[in-house]
């Protein structure tokens, strides 16, 4: 119940930051428009834009809750309830954002394996929330976190997709799934992409929970012994 309440209220909180929300929603559009003439490039860039937008928003949501979380723990909430609730909200936002841009791609581009484009954008949106959350957990100050995300996204875009460095990037799966969807590669691309995405999701979610479990741990004190009268 705590997770659902945290999710609902996190969504409301994000919804009220209208200017930030508008900027975050429009960010992937610029990525898309720059390479609109090339189907493969534009959809992959759009997907990376979604990843950057969702992870940055998650980072800020996680950081803005730093003062509230310890008090929620003292009131009885579990770490999984607090962090899980926030991840549910931000993953939901990511899927909505991806859904909106999927409609745009469907109208604007001619793609045979459209379902694979949906898979690429959906998995990337789902990866972005725990990734932003992990960066927020490791770098609790907003500026440092935002710069770290910027660095990761820059390397992700600039690294040779076939090289080793790119494979260590969190959104490498988008490249594999995008190639399968647009360039018509074999099923091995699809499975490799999904396996990478699953691994990154597990790693980011697990590490986020581990970091917060340590940060939000409460000292366990015994109750005072009853006195003899």
């Amino acid at each position: 119940m705590t997770a659902l309440t945290v999710a609902g209220l996190s969504a409301r909180e994000v919804g009220r930051r209208r200017t930030a929300l508008l900027l975050v929603i429009s960010l992937p559009l610029w990525f898309y428009l720059v390479r609109r003439d090339l189907t493969g490039q534009s959809t992959r860039m759009l997907t990376l834009g979604i990843a950057w937008a969702v992870s940055t928003l998650t980072l800020f949501v996680v950081n803005s809750a730093r003062g509230v979380d310890p008090r929620l723990r003292l009131s009885g909430a579990s770490v999984a309830g607090i962090i899980g609730g926030r991840l549910i909200a931000m993953s939901g936002f990511g899927l909505l954002l991806a859904g909106g841009y999927l409609v745009l791609v469907g109208i604007d581009q001619d793609i045979d394996r459209f379902w694979a484009i949906a898979l690429m954008m959906g998995t990337t949106a789902l990866l972005a929330a725990p990734f932003g959350s992990l960066v927020g957990a490791l770098l609790p100050r907003e500026l440092e976190g935002a710069l770290a995300l910027l660095s990761v996204c820059a390397v992700q875009m600039l690294a040779d997709p076939a090289g080793t460095i790119a494979k260590f990037m969190p959104f490498w799966s988008a490249r594999e799934l995008g190639t399968y969807a647009v360039d018509g590669g074999g099923a091995d691309l699809l499975w490799r992409g999904l396996a990478h995405a699953a691994m990154v999701w597990l790693l980011c979610t697990g590490l986020t929970l581990a970091v917060f479990a340590r940060r939000l741990r409460l000292a366990r004190y015994p109750e005072p012994a009853p006195e003899r009268t």
Partner: peptide, 19 residues
């Protein structure tokens, strides 16, 4: 110790759910 974008009532709901 509070979330700036939530109302007081939403804080009651949040902290109540935790308890």
């Amino acid at each position: 110790g509070t979330a700036g974008w939530l109302t007081a009532e939403e804080h009651f709901t949040l902290f109540g759910a935790a308890a």
